[in-house]
């Protein structure tokens, strides 16, 4: 049994221009010790997936309409509000994209990390204070005793993101969800944060969901990739298969539109058109309006996510076959 299993998840939001479906039946699973990358453009539903797992979908205007999220054998959507909260931070932790906004501006960072222990009633050996200092040392913050008493605005962007990460790993959770943890950072700092995440990954057997639109980070960290488009998963594959032999035309387009060092091709081909309007998605396959391979069937039938090889799936009527 997988550590985390998401099945047929549908999430919608009320907006002034109508009801939009942010997730349209998303299914995936995560094993212990595995890093799964959720890859897609902004608006594809990656962050909403994380929110749904953490019970952070704002209601109203949002609502989980159907589906299931199973964690360690328990159905999360059937748990009470407080039972969900007890799992969060403790066994499933979330790292936010923008650490400056995600840290509370009026409390010292040490206090905010220590709060993890306090909320879940943990008493680490040597006391909470020592645990916090040890964590700050472990993530590479110099002079941790002094820094713990400082406020978020007194740290650099990279440091703040490290503190977010320290907070997430404090209670050694089973699942760590990182929601674009490097997007808001400079490129050099990005590399440091990715290194830190890689170290954490090596040290624990936690499963990690890594949400990103950055193929480079995916290649560096992920074991498996789920590509998302317009609220659906359109392809899942292990990271090598995806880079070598993507099946869904969207994945192929995504790979072609980003620079790579491992091939000789130096021409970047952007995907034509723009992401579809979530209020009025095209009928059938949402990608068909931008897809070079689209035919009449694509406008009539939504392609289901089907197994296209050992351990890999794609949702396309006319998958790309390179071999």
């Amino acid at each position: 049994m997988a550590l985390l299993e998401v099945e047929d998840l549908q999430v919608s939001f009320d907006t002034a221009s109508g009801r939009i479906f942010a997730l349209n039946g998303v299914s995936f699973s995560l094993e212990r010790g595995e890093v799964l990358a959720l890859l897609g453009e902004s608006g594809s539903g990656k962050s909403v997936t994380a929110s749904a797992i953490m019970d952070l979908v704002p209601n109203p205007p949002g609502a989980i309409d159907r589906g299931s999220i199973r964690f360690d054998g328990a159905e999360l959507l059937k748990l009470s509000r407080n039972e969900r909260r007890d799992l969060c931070g403790n066994r499933i932790a979330l790292i936010f994209q923008d650490a400056l906004a995600a840290l509370n501006p009026v409390y010292p960072v040490g206090w905010q990390i220590a709060e993890m222990y306090r909320i879940h009633g943990r008493n680490p050996e040597g006391g909470v204070e020592k645990a916090v200092i040890d964590l700050l040392t472990a993530i590479g913050i110099p002079d941790p005793e002094r820094r713990a008493r400082q406020y978020p605005h007194e740290f650099s962007g990279g440091m703040r993101q490290r503190i977010m990460i320290a907070m997430a790993v404090a209670l050694e959770p089973d699942v760590i969800i990182a929601d674009e943890p490097t997007t808001a950072l400079d490129v050099t700092i990005q590399a440091q944060v990715v290194d830190l995440l890689a170290t954490i990954r090596k040290r624990s057997d936690a499963g990690m969901i890594f949400i990103t639109h950055d193929l480079g980070v995916v290649a560096e960290l992920a074991d498996r990739v789920a590509v998302m488009y317009a609220g659906r998963i359109v392809e899942t594959a292990n990271v090598f298969e995806l880079f070598e032999d993507a099946r869904h035309p969207y994945s192929v387009g995504l790979l072609a539109s980003q620079p790579r060092v491992d091939t000789d091709e130096d021409e970047l081909v952007p995907i034509p058109g723009s992401a579809p309007n979530p209020v009025a998605l095209p009928s059938g396959c949402a990608f068909r309006t931008r897809c070079p391979r689209a035919e009449r069937l694509c406008a009539e039938v939504i392609p289901p996510l089907e197994t296209v090889g050992p351990g890999r799936q794609a949702a396309c009527h006319f998958p790309v076959l390179t071999a």
Partner: peptide
């Protein structure tokens, strides 16, 4: 304020 519009039209307030 467009970000508040849903309050005026949403049925599920």
């Amino acid at each position: 304020d467009p970000s508040q519009h849903w309050r005026l039209v949403s049925r599920r307030r």
